[in-house]
Simulated assay, not measured.
Amino acid sequence: MQGNKTDSLYQRYPKDTMSSAFSRTGFVVICLTIVVNLALYPVLRTLGIQIHSAITGSYVPGYHSVLLINCPTEQTARDIGRGIMEKRLAACVNIFPRTATMYYWKGEIRDASEILLLVRTRTSLIQRLEAYLRDVHPYDIPEIISFPIGDGSLHYLKWMENALTDI
């Protein structure tokens, strides 16, 4: 008798094939929505920032960055700077003449003269810029240091954005 009660309490019903198909379809739609949103996140974020900036007339801190890059010679700095500009990875590159540099290398203090590049770009382009620099820079470990721009002249920052629009 108890077997009958247990069987009746836990009786299995045949699965409704229509609701099963809908739940699988719903799961697939949710997964695809998540994948598409993740893939489009950079575009959606950029668009959101531009809309926010246009509506409020303000700058979103950190949207652009300044990078410091040291090079061994002026010609190397010019070649790298030109490559950065040709690839549209920056709005502007300044080349500062000789700087005196002291650094540790392989356990010793070294002195050198270097040329400093000051690069202004969109923060979202830093990884592409770093990848390019690793390919062309003569140093084993090139100095690539970035600082997000917190604020500045809105006219200049707008000019920067317009200079980077084809990217």
Score class of each variant (00 low, 15 high):
Ser20Leu: 10
Asp151Gly: 07
Leu125Thr: 07
Ile144Met: 14
Gln50Pro: 00
Tyr132Ile: 15
Phe22Ile: 06
Arg45Asp: 11
Leu118Arg: 08
Thr101Ile: 06
Tyr41Gly: 05
Asp140Glu: 15
Ala131Ile: 12
Ser23Ala: 10
Asp79Leu: 02
Ser124Leu: 13
Lys106Asp: 12
Tyr156Thr: 05
Leu40Cys: 11
Ser65Cys: 09
Ile144Tyr: 05
Cys71Ser: 10
Asn94Leu: 00
Thr165Ile: 10
Arg45Tyr: 13
Ala163Lys: 14
Pro142Arg: 08
Ile55Arg: 10
Glu130Ser: 13
Pro14Asn: 09
Phe96Tyr: 06
Val35Ser: 00
Glu143Gly: 02
Gly150Gln: 12
Arg110Glu: 15
Asp111Tyr: 08
Met85Gln: 01
Glu108Thr: 10
Leu157Tyr: 10
Cys31His: 02
Val29Asn: 03
Thr99Pro: 00
Arg12Cys: 09
Pro148Ile: 01
Leu67Ile: 03
Met85Ser: 03
Ile109Asn: 01
Ala77Ile: 04
Leu157Val: 04
Pro138Gln: 07
Ser8Thr: 07
Tyr132Arg: 14
Ser153Val: 03
Cys31Pro: 00
Ile51Met: 08
Ile51Ala: 11
Leu157Ser: 09
Met18Lys: 11
Gly48Cys: 05
Asn94Phe: 07
Ile49Ser: 04
Ala100Met: 01
Ile145Asp: 04
Gln11Leu: 04
Gly3Lys: 14
Leu154Tyr: 03
Pro61Ala: 01
Ile145Asn: 05
Asn94Asp: 04
Arg88Gly: 02
Gly3Cys: 12
Val66Tyr: 01
Thr17Phe: 03
Pro72Leu: 07
Met18Ser: 12
Ser8Val: 08
Leu44Gly: 07
Gln2Met: 05
Leu44Tyr: 05
